[in-house]
C-alpha cells in the first residue's frame, strides 16, 4: 500500500490493495462464524437439553473458553499446522484457511455458550407444551433454536466481533503476507510498526465502520423478520 496516501484517500480512490485486505478480512471472519454456527448452535442446544455426567464441567469449560487468549489459540494452531507438526502434511500454514480455522476455534465457544443459555431459558417456557406434544429430542432442539433465532443473532454478532477484531491468531497462523493473508488488523499492526500512524488510525476507523455496518444490517434484518413473524 502506498505510504504517502492517507486512509481516506485510499477509500475514495478505491485502492485495490485496500479492497483485497477488506475482502479477505470479511471472508475469513464470516467463514469462521459460519463454521462456528454449524458447530456451535447444535452443541449449545444439545448442552441445554440433555443431562449427562460432566455436563456442568463442560458448561463451565465452554464459558471459560469464551475468553481464550487469541495468541495461545494462534500458537496452538501454528504448531499443529507447521510442517514439523502433526497436520503439517496439509500444507495450509500461512493460508487464509489456517486463519479461518483459528478464528473458528475462538468463535465456537462464544456461540455455543450463548446458545446454551438462550435455549435453556426458552426450554423452561416450552417444556410442558413440547412434552405434551411428545416431540423428540431432535425436534425439541430444532424448535427451540428456531424460536430463539432473534436472540441468537446477538450471539452471532458477538462471535463475528471477536473474529473481526482480533490480531493475535491471524498474525501467527497467517503470517501477514501482502496480498494473501494480510487482514485489516494485521495491516494496522504493520502500519503502526512502520510509524505510519495516520494510515494505521484510518484503517482502524474503517474497520470499526465495517463492523458498525454489519451490526446495523443484522439489526435491520432482525426488526424486519420480527415484524413478518408477527
Amino acid at each position: 500500500m502506498p505510504d504517502s496516501l492517507d486512509a481516506w484517500q485510499l477509500i475514495i480512490t478505491g485502492d485495490a490493495a485496500l479492497y483485497t485486505i477488506v475482502r479477505l478480512s470479511l471472508a475469513v471472519s464470516l467463514s469462521a462464524v459460519a463454521i462456528a454456527v454449524v458447530v456451535g448452535l447444535p452443541l449449545g442446544a444439545m448442552l441445554a437439553l440433555t443431562r449427562f455426567r460432566g455436563r456442568t464441567a463442560l458448561i463451565v469449560l465452554l464459558n471459560c473458553f469464551m475468553g481464550l487468549p487469541p495468541v495461545v489459540v494462534g500458537l496452538t494452531v501454528f504448531l499443529l499446522l507447521s510442517r514439523s507438526g502433526p497436520l503439517g502434511v496439509l500444507g495450509i500454514l500461512f493460508t487464509p484457511l489456517a486463519m479461518i480455522i483459528a478464528q473458528a476455534l475462538l468463535v465456537v465457544p462464544i456461540i455455543a455458550a450463548l446458545t446454551r443459555q438462550t435455549v435453556e431459558d426458552l426450554w423452561r417456557e416450552y417444556r410442558d407444551e413440547l412434552t405434551a406434544l411428545n416431540v423428540g429430542p431432535a425436534g425439541r432442539m430444532a424448535t427451540l433454536l428456531w424460536d430463539s433465532r432473534f436472540s441468537l443473532i446477538t450471539a452471532l454478532l458477538a462471535g463475528f466481533g471477536r473474529a473481526a477484531a482480533e490480531v493475535g491468531t491471524v498474525m501467527i497462523v497467517g503470517g501477514n503476507i501482502d496480498g494473501f493473508t494480510r487482514t485489516m488488523t494485521t495491516a494496522i499492526a504493520l502500519e503502526t510498526s512502520k510509524g505510519n500512524l495516520p494510515l494505521a488510525m484510518g484503517l482502524g476507523l474503517l474497520l470499526i465502520a465495517l463492523i458498525l455496518v454489519i451490526n446495523g444490517a443484522a439489526w435491520a434484518v432482525r426488526a424486519w423478520s420480527e415484524e413478518k413473524a408477527g
Binding site: A27, L30, S31, A34, I35, V37, V38, L41, G91, I92, T95, P96, L97, I100, A142, L145, W146, R149, F180
Partner: peptide, 26 residues
C-alpha cells in the same frame, strides 16, 4: 425446516471459501 435450510446455506458458504482457498494454495 427453515433453519435446516439456513444451516445448509451456511455450510455452502464455508465450503466455497475452503474451495477458493485450496485453489490459491496451488
Amino acid at each position: 425446516m427453515l433453519n435446516r435450510r439456513l444451516f445448509s446455506a451456511l455450510a455452502a458458504v464455508a465450503l466455497l471459501s475452503f474451495g477458493s482457498v485450496a485453489a490459491i494454495a496451488q
